[in-house]
Design a protein around this nucleic acid. Structure first.
Lengths: 157, 157
DNA sequence: GGCAAATTGTTTCAGATGAAACGAAATCAT
DNA sequence: ATGATTTCGTTTCATCTGAAACAATTTGCC
C-alpha cells in the first residue's frame, strides 16, 4: 500500500479530513458497542462518567473546559446519569448557579466494570497497528489537536 | 509541549480514542462552517455532492461502498440534493430497484464554488503543523484505517 | 443599595437521526 | 413458471440534537 504524503496538496486537504472523520467514527462506533449496546450509556454519559470516576467533585464550569460537552449536553447527560443513580448533582453553595457533580459508589462500580471492556476493545483495534504507526498516529494527532487549538491535557496526567 | 508516545499503554488505549474523536469533531465542525453555515449543506449532502462532482453517473449500490453513507442516509441526502436541483436521480433501466445519481450543471457549479473554500479552511488548520507531524498523521491514520478494516482508496486515485 | 448586563442550567421547538417496518423489484429454488 | 427469499429505496416512529428562549443567580456599575 502506498501513501502519497503531500506531493499533491489538493489531494491531502480534501481526502485527509474525510479519512479522519471516517476513522474517528468507526473507532467511536466500535467502542460504543461496549458502553452503549451493553450498558445503555450515550457517548456523553460515558465521557462524563469517565471523568467523574477519577476526579472527586467537579463544578460544571470546570467540567465544560475539560470536556467537549457544551452546557446543554452536560445538562442532559448529567440528568440521565443522575436518574440512573450513577452521579449526584448538588447546587454549589459558593455560586448557586453552578452545580457540583460527583460520582456515586454505584457509578464508580459501573465504571470499573465497563472500563476494562472498553480498553480491551480499543486494544483489539490498535494492536494490529505497528509500533511505528502507533507512534506516528500519536504524534500526528497531538500536532493536529494543537493546530486545532484544542485545550491540552484534558484528562490531566 | 511533550508527548508521551506509548510508554504507558493504558494511557494510549483510553486517552487516544478520545483525542481522535475530539480532533475529528473539531476539524469537521470547522469545515462545516463553510459548506453548512454558508451554503446550507449537511455533511452527508456535501460528501455526496463531492463524489458526484468528479464521477459521472453512479449507481446507489456502488455509492454505498465508496461512502460511509448507509442506504437511509443516502436516500435522504440525495432527496434533498435533488430538491435543490443539484443532482438528478433516475431509476436504473438495468435494475429498477437501483437509482442512478448524477450531478447537474448547477451542482457542479456549486461544488466548484465551495470546494476551494473548504480546501482553504482545511489548509489553514493543517498549515500550522510541521511537515513531520503531517507525515506522521497521514501514516498513523492510514494504519488506523487499515486496523479498523476500512475499505481503502475510497476516492479512487 | 439598586438596576442593567452577564453567566449558568434548563426547557422548548424544529429538524436530524437510527432502527425497524414496508413495498417494489429482482433472484433463487424447485 | 411460481412462490419464497433477497435486495433495494423509502417511510415511520421514537429518540436525539442544536439553537434559541427562558428563569435564576451573580457581577458590574453608578
Amino acid at each position: 500500500m502506498t501513501f502519497r504524503i503531500s506531493d499533491d496538496l489538493e489531494q491531502l486537504e480534501t481526502f485527509f479530513p474525510y479519512q479522519l472523520a471516517v476513522a474517528a467514527e468507526r473507532f467511536s462506533r466500535d467502542l460504543m458497542e461496549v458502553y452503549n449496546k451493553t450498558y445503555g450509556l450515550t457517548r456523553e454519559e460515558w465521557r462524563l462518567l469517565f471523568l467523574l470516576s477519577r476526579e472527586g467533585q467537579i463544578a460544571s464550569n470546570e467540567l465544560a473546559q475539560r470536556t467537549t460537552l457544551d452546557k446543554v449536553q452536560l445538562s442532559r447527560a448529567s440528568q440521565r446519569l443522575a436518574d440512573k443513580g450513577l452521579i449526584t448533582r448538588n447546587v454549589s453553595p459558593k455560586d448557586r448557579r453552578l452545580k457540583l457533580y460527583q460520582s456515586t459508589e454505584k457509578g464508580r462500580a459501573l465504571f470499573a466494570e465497563i472500563k476494562p471492556q472498553v480498553d480491551a476493545r480499543a486494544s483489539d483495534i490498535v494492536s494490529s497497528m505497528s509500533k511505528e504507526q502507533k507512534a506516528a498516529l500519536q504524534m500526528g494527532l497531538n500536532g493536529l489537536l494543537e493546530a486545532l487549538g484544542a485545550p491540552e491535557q484534558m484528562f490531566g496526567d
